[in-house]
Design a protein around this nucleic acid. Structure first.
Lengths: 245, 245
DNA sequence: GCAAAAGTGTTGGAAATACACCCATGT
DNA sequence: ACATGGGTGTATTTCCAACACTTTTGC
């Protein structure tokens, strides 16, 4: 959360509110969104430049205090809507951060949410302001404990995309298998065998052939697929015995 | 969190505080501990009978408001110490719950922690009061949204013990392989092959032979092992490719 | 016709599973 | 001596990993 950042449904004097809360022995509660995107074969995250004094040159996550009348998920959705204009994004709570000195403006516990958006679709709607995409792997410094939060969410994503079909949220509705593989390779930072990758995903029976092909590629065009949510029926959670420490 | 339960470091009028906070548009923050134990070959959870009016017959998790000067983990440890007298327990944050109407005393966001304790070791220290162990699988009703929290933590545990060596925290320092297997069978609700189970754990090279044997068993006594934390050096996080939806 | 990536099967090894008999102890 | 669970090895199957050539398009 970057406290001096004005948001659409702006609450003035957040910093002041927090100081007041703190002097009363009360803890503020916020939501911070780690908004992931995929572009140029790299994993990106949406950050804002901090306006808070002492943090002028640092980047921070998009966040806000939780309103009294909204639950945590709603707060996260609100932030996403306000900042990206999108409201059909993948969103999931990751964990909470409550270190005592984590925020300079006062005692705030924050709930981190990871969000996956399609950058292409999103580009048009982004409000022309100080919000920009950054490569996840090359971010050096961030405000407050936001680097920690980002890294926890990044590791969460690495595990998560191997166990649940959510990587599709980072891609356009139609995508080639190569794009899907690039996504996995970038996020997991590995090189994968094309044939085995293909075999794996086809055997899971989640991809639907759109009948269309790539265009404007200087080589044989690949088929375009879409993710078929309906087919994802958790076909029996098999292996009880994933014991593997 | 059960608000009228007096705790060792008692803060009077929690309910009143919350009502005040709510009227001020402020959100309270608490920690709830799901304390798991293993006894009689069953997974148990430590619950307290709710004193809050309207919830007299319901059980609730052990929780408390987070103090202004302590971080979330510290708050969870404090609750554990106060309620069980133990301070070397396994403790891990699971997730937050912030539904608007989740607590009748006001708006409170709670952070759920899962904790694993050894019931035997714990028995002696438990304060003689209204706190008791309950079978996880047969709990019917609970106060507030605590049944949901418990179930989320139970599912978390089922996944977690397959990926990390934390089941040992539920057992005595020395245990037989049969006890370990019973633990897994109870938590995962499956029947396992004894030979394969044994093979698996020995191949992971985490168990240390104590040289001692079971006593007072009406059959051939099994060897006793202890969990060797040192040997658990995350021997390379192998499979990048756990893709399996 | 050449460059560049798409598309496609097979094989060998490792790990998971299924399965049955002898052993040590208490009664 | 017998009842009870401890302790052990092997054969089968399943899954993962490695690997090379042909096809289609743009230039």
């Amino acid at each position: 959360m970057d406290l001096k950042t004005p948001s659409a449904s702006s609450h003035k004097n957040v910093s002041t509110i927090l100081k007041q809360l703190e002097s009363d022995g009360i803890i503020g509660i916020s939501v911070d969104c780690v908004i992931f995107g995929f572009d140029d074969n790299e994993l990106k995250v949406l950050l804002i430049k901090s306006d808070l004094e002492g943090f002028e040159d640092k980047f921070s996550l998009l966040g806000d205090l939780v309103h009294n009348h909204e639950d945590l998920d709603q707060a996260a959705y609100r932030i996403l809507r306000e900042r990206t204009g999108m409201d059909d994004v993948y969103l999931e709570q990751v964990r909470s951060f409550g270190q005592i000195g984590r925020h300079p403006a006062g005692r705030v516990v924050t709930i981190a949410y990871a969000s996956l958006v399609n950058i292409e679709h999103h580009k048009l709607k982004i409000l022309a302001n100080e919000v920009h995409w950054h490569r996840v792997t090359t971010i050096s410094e961030m405000a407050f404990d936001h680097k920690t939060i980002l890294m926890v969410c990044y590791e969460w994503l690495q595990r998560r995309i191997q166990e649940h079909p959510l990587g599709f949220s980072l891609l356009p509705k139609q995508f080639s298998l190569r794009e899907l593989q690039n996504l996995y390779e970038a996020i997991l930072d590995v090189k994968l065998d094309r044939r085995n990758f293909r075999k794996k995903f086809f055997s899971m029976d989640l991809l639907e052939d759109t009948g269309e092909l790539e265009t404007d590629v200087p080589h044989r065009p690949g088929k375009l697929y879409r993710f078929n949510y309906d087919k994802y029926k958790k076909k029996e959670r098999k292996k009880w015995f994933g014991i593997d420490f």
